[in-house]
Write a protein that binds this DNA or RNA. Structure first.
Lengths: 148, 148
DNA sequence: CCTTTACCTCAAGTTTACTTGAGGTTTTAG
DNA sequence: CTAAAACCTCAAGTAAACTTGAGGTAAAGG
């Protein structure tokens, strides 16, 4: 049983069948068809779906994921090296994100310590505001890559 | 100048005026009105907006944020203790999230190490799949709080 | 005073990521 | 062989988080 039906992939990946259809239209996964026009997925599809779900945890959009997947072959199972370079790429991204969250956590710690009643020395609030200078405000740790 | 106009809050927080209107309809921020029916915000509004943006980084929805804000007074500036208990709550959440991302990062590291050609020992893929047992699949680290 | 900039409200539009449903075909289990 | 379960396509609906636009009022600078 080399190939899997859409229902099998769905149940083993914990997603709905409709989600897999959707991912296929987005070019995130690929299938061939059997005699009766039903989808048949290679086993690597499950890893793709796992990676999609993992990446979404990091706040990565499907478009970006698709872009990252673009280096992988669509219809043949990716090689070891190909998976590895993808995984490495995600991990770099993931570690950046962890760092940012850590920084945010530190800011909150400062916030808890400072009391923040005065708003003058709150590290969260004052990360950019500098006590009300003209210009852009306390745009804090977000907005690294054009989120708005 | 104790109170701020919507435009001032917007530019100092790095968000659009329409976003502040939107947040107000959602009950995330509050304003009084001047003689000409224009909004006037207390300075604590900026901290609220900072916290909203920070929380969004953690994947917290506006509804949840609103719920967390519910403990704060709407029209009077929150006290030190009130801010602190909020910040502490966020930080617990934040640290949980960091832990999860760390776990994901570890899985990816395993993935990079194992090569994953066989799919038999990939820690990312096999976190729940157990080599194809019947039942639910490699539902990995997500889905902690009914995300789908 | 007058014009430009900032505000106001309310309705409708946008994007992302899916889900639901209708109407019909294929597989599979008994 | 037949009935239920699984698939198929395509269109439309949903939810979150905003944004845009129209039509009109207020405030601020010269």
């Amino acid at each position: 049983m080399a190939e899997l039906s859409v229902g099998q992939v769905a149940s083993r990946c914990g997603v709905k069948v409709s989600t897999l259809h959707f991912y296929e239209t987005k070019g995130l996964i690929f299938s061939s068809r059997n005699a009766g026009n039903q989808r048949r997925f290679g086993r690597d599809t499950m890893r793709r779906v796992s990676l999609i779900k993992a990446a979404q945890q990091l706040g990565v959009s499907l478009d970006e994921i698709q872009h990252a997947f673009a280096s992988l072959p669509s219809y043949t199972a990716p090689t070891q090296a190909q998976w590895q370079s993808m995984a490495t790429g995600w991990q770099i991204r993931l570690n950046e994100r962890i760092k940012r969250l850590q920084a945010l956590s530190d800011s909150l710690t400062g916030c808890i310590g400072c009391g923040c009643l005065s708003m003058k020395n709150c590290p969260l609030y004052n990360s950019q505001d500098k006590l009300g200078k003209v210009g852009s405000g306390p745009v804090l740790l977000q907005r690294k890559a054009g989120q708005q």
